[in-house]
């Protein structure tokens, strides 16, 4: 009896708390926020399934009548999304590997090893965070032209690496700093050389850092537009961003269905990655911006 009474009293306060104006206001704000942030994406996905007549005859916010997969077929065949995707993968992953390998090596030499001038070298790398791409675009364009690297993925991979290094080295040195020097000293006393220190002690401790840096750089490289539109104009070498830009420019006005399908095709993989790794992604991207 007593417990029942207490329970109903609890339920009553619970209800009162739930109907508190402050909570209702918070709920409304959350609702509004979700509509603002998610509606454009939901609308994109729904619209990608609409047939051509639906766009003409029904309002744009109406739900699709069914699944018109033809849009996706059009986007992938006429839009050549398969080629663009492949190119993006062929550029992004080698660049990531190069950034992580060279960046981790450099951070190790700067933070763990001892030599004169390493602070100056670190500062030189960090200064690169501020440099706008525009200032190197013309010299690189001429250089790649002379070296016949235009329309070559290598040009993109090297440029992404150079522009990825400042932030990468900044993050890696930050991760290396807290490693206790005693661990490294003990290994050296036991006879390890510097390469063994790197491979057996530092590298295993850097697993998290590598994932974080990799994710941050992945989004920078995958979403790049300016470099790929400058150094690549051969259609068969285009990455997904320039490919999508051209597709939207070419078919966007008249063929909304395939256009929505093409946009959705570039959004969905990112969405899946985000659903799986959002904690790591948020931590990595925010760590990369405001630690300095």
């Amino acid at each position: 009896m007593a417990t029942t009474l207490r329970r109903s009293a609890q339920a009553a306060t619970h209800l009162r708390q739930r109907l508190h104006p402050r909570r209702i206001a918070a709920g409304l704000i959350v609702g509004l926020l979700l509509i603002i942030q998610l509606y454009p994406l939901i609308w994109l996905l729904l619209s990608s399934f609409k047939g051509p007549t639906e766009f003409n005859l029904r309002p744009i916010y109406a739900l699709p009548e069914g699944f018109y997969w033809q849009n996706y077929l059009d986007a992938w065949t006429r839009g050549r999304l398969n080629i663009y995707y492949l190119n993006s993968i062929l550029v992004t992953f080698p660049a990531l590997l190069l950034i992580i390998a060279t960046g981790l090596g450099a951070a190790f030499a700067i933070e763990i090893m001892r030599w004169r001038g390493r602070n100056l070298v670190l500062l030189t790398f960090l200064a690169g965070i501020m440099v706008p791409l525009q200032i190197v675009l013309l010299p690189l364009f001429s250089a790649y032209y002379q070296l016949q690297l235009l329309n070559n993925h290598l040009a993109l991979i090297l440029t992404y690496t150079a522009f990825g290094l400042p932030l990468t080295i900044f993050l890696f040195t930050g991760y290396l700093k807290p490693i206790p020097r005693e661990v490294i000293e003990a290994a050296i006393v036991d006879g390890a050389n510097i390469y063994q220190v790197f491979a057996r002690i530092v590298l295993p401790m850097m697993a998290n850092a590598i994932v974080t840096v990799g994710l941050v750089q992945f989004f920078f490289i995958w979403n790049d537009l300016i470099l790929s539109m400058t150094f690549i104009n051969d259609v068969s070498m285009r990455t997904i961003q320039t490919g999508l830009l051209n597709f939207v420019g070419q078919y966007g006005q008249r063929e909304w269905g395939p256009t929505f399908a093409a946009i959705a095709s570039s959004v969905i993989p990112i969405l899946i990655i985000y659903l799986a790794l959002n904690n790591l992604i948020i931590r990595g991207l925010t760590a990369g911006s405001v630690k300095g």
């Binding site: 090893m113 150079a162 400042p166 220190v197």
Partner: peptide
């Protein structure tokens, strides 16, 4: 060991060359 010059060049070199050249 920590002042090994050759090793420092091997670790730092590739990043520095790419960064300086590009």
């Amino acid at each position: 060991v920590l002042r090994d010059r050759t090793a420092a060049v091997i670790f730092l070199g590739p990043a520095l060359v790419i960064y300086v050249c590009i």
